[in-house]
């Protein structure tokens, strides 16, 4: 039904002899919401780094909207609409909350000038509920607030593809619903594809349509969340850890 947005072809990456990504093939469609799950060290964050261009690949290619972006630096990918929220929030500590989000908004194809970026930033801050803190320095936020700021900064540029790295890790269950509800609402409004990295798929189960199980740098399963969750392979590898 919907068009392909991102395609990874035989992507591999090693670090000092360890194959962090091993021949990964993955297609993400427009507007799709998908979770990438896997135990610690499965290569999830490496996958995100590869998609956002933090390092070059050993082999394989990445296509975005039909265009080969394998060699593009991170800032160009962001400009084209690939936006990322870091696992450990990395706000620009010495800048205000608003300016953080303005930076996120400003450097993208769809936002033309600072004025527009500010309007967009205020809008997103209201949506995530941080508007009252917009003039605070980012360094002074609490950790859940920093997570929200990280999310706001990633949503601000009206991305096509949103990469959320452990956005709900360390967040109490009630808050998870709030954050994920927000992500789903905004992404449906703006037709954003969402890829969420999670260690425990249970936490985001009801928000995604598809789950990809990554283990030792390989895609082990790619199916509906239910099927992935109930497969023997996944159970074996997690040793029941999923049912916390």
């Amino acid at each position: 039904m919907s068009k392909e947005l991102l395609r990874l072809e035989n992507v591999s990456k090693s670090f000092g002899g360890i194959r962090a990504l091993n021949n990964v093939n993955l297609i993400i469609k427009e507007g799709e919401k998908l979770a990438i799950i896997g135990p610690n060290g499965a290569g999830k964050t490496t996958l995100f780094n590869a998609i956002s261009g933090v390092f070059g690949l050993d082999s394989g290619r990445i296509f975005y909207m039909g265009r080969d972006i394998t060699k593009l630096p991170p800032f160009k990918r962001k400009y084209l609409g690939i936006s990322r929220a870091f696992q450990i929030p990395r706000p620009f500590a010495g800048m205000t909350v608003l300016d953080n989000v303005v930076v996120g908004a400003l450097f993208s194809r769809d936002i033309k000038d600072i004025k527009e970026a500010r309007v967009r930033a205020e809008e997103i801050l209201s949506l995530v509920g941080l508007h009252s803190k917009k003039d605070e320095l980012a360094v002074n936020l609490t950790s859940p607030e920093k997570k929200l700021l990280e999310l706001a900064r990633a949503l601000a540029p009206k991305p096509k593809l949103l990469l959320l790295d452990e956005i709900v890790a360390g967040i109490p269950p009630a808050e998870v619903d709030k954050i994920m509800g927000l992500v789903v609402r905004i992404s449906e409004q703006e037709n954003i594809s969402v890829v969420a990295l999670v260690e425990h798929v249970m936490r985001v189960l009801k928000y995604v349509e598809r789950a990809v199980f990554l283990h030792e740098g390989r895609v082990m399963m790619d199916d509906t969340p239910d099927k992935v969750l109930n497969s023997e392979v996944v159970k074996d590898i997690y040793l029941g850890k999923v049912y916390e």
């Binding site: 933090v54 630096p73 991170p74 800032f75 990322r84 870091f86 010495g94 930076v103 996120g104």
Partner: peptide
């Protein structure tokens, strides 16, 4: 503030 994050943010 953070050169790598700025790069990922599109700078």
């Amino acid at each position: 503030e953070d050169e790598e994050a700025a790069n990922v943010m599109g700078v």
